[in-house]
Write a protein that binds this DNA or RNA. Structure first.
Lengths: 147, 147
DNA sequence: AATGAAAGGAATCCCCC
DNA sequence: GGGGGATTCCTTTCATT
């Protein structure tokens, strides 16, 4: 992992579908060694994959909400049940176990506020072991995705 | 935007670097119309771009922290100054203006806890108009990125 | 470990359906 | 709006330095 590898990662983080030929030109290499490096970065797990960034509104997910969750009990089985259940909700885009006032921070994407109300009442409330739920509705996103 | 478009988005969201030929086969189209659809989705802004997913630890960003920020003043100029300053911090991966107990929710990535302490004291504390900062350190990520 | 050439394959465009 | 075919570019491998 040298400066060239870091340059490759920096380009691919922003332009994941750039051709190997263009990528090679950007980092000052010929296509062959550039491709070798990309393959090595992929196989070693440094590059985990590639994603298209989709406009949420175009797929009916205009509303982004962050949710702080406190659990009722912290025994291993209770925690596992909650974690299992939360990862099965398709609305939950990200889920983190965190320190501080909350046990978990979830990021969910839904169509609109009525859809969130429905999710809150019928999905979150039915998760096992949930004590409290604090919702933070996104009004504006200043920055999304970086590297 | 029909079911085929949605199928294309679903595939590209998970395999952003799939070849057009393979993508066409997946959605039951021949390469030509498939490429036309992808180009249309890109030009209309439904597809915003493509990103490689990089292992944070491989680029010295092993620690992910969520930060709730409350501002001291909410006059337009004060808000603008904060927003401008926060988007210039490279450690800040995401920044959202939210409802609820906090004004902003930031997501930052740094090397480790000492690095975060430094960021907290020397970068966040120097942002204009910041009243309070609440840190939520990620211990485990259950799910990251979805579609 | 990078280069350059060469072969195979894919993307892309045009035209027809 | 979808399919087929020709061209062009890219990817990929291998021999070489």
């Amino acid at each position: 992992m040298d400066d060239v590898d870091r340059a490759i990662l920096s380009v691919l983080a922003r332009e994941g579908r750039i051709s190997n030929a263009d990528l090679a030109a950007r980092v000052g290499l010929s296509p062959s060694p550039c491709l070798r490096r990309v393959n090595r970065l992929e196989q070693s797990g440094v590059i985990r994959g590639y994603r298209a960034v989709i406009d949420p509104a175009a797929v009916g997910r205009s509303l982004r909400v962050f949710i702080g969750v406190r659990l009722a009990r912290h025994a291993r089985a209770d925690v596992a049940a909650f974690e299992q259940a939360v990862t099965e909700l398709s609305e939950v885009v990200n889920a983190h176990h965190i320190t501080g006032n909350f046990d978990y921070l979830l990021q969910v994407e839904v169509a609109d506020l009525p859809a969130y109300e429905h999710f809150h009442a019928h999905q979150l409330a039915e998760l096992p072991n949930v004590a409290t739920v604090s919702s933070y509705v996104t009004m504006k996103t200043l920055r999304r995705g970086n590297a």
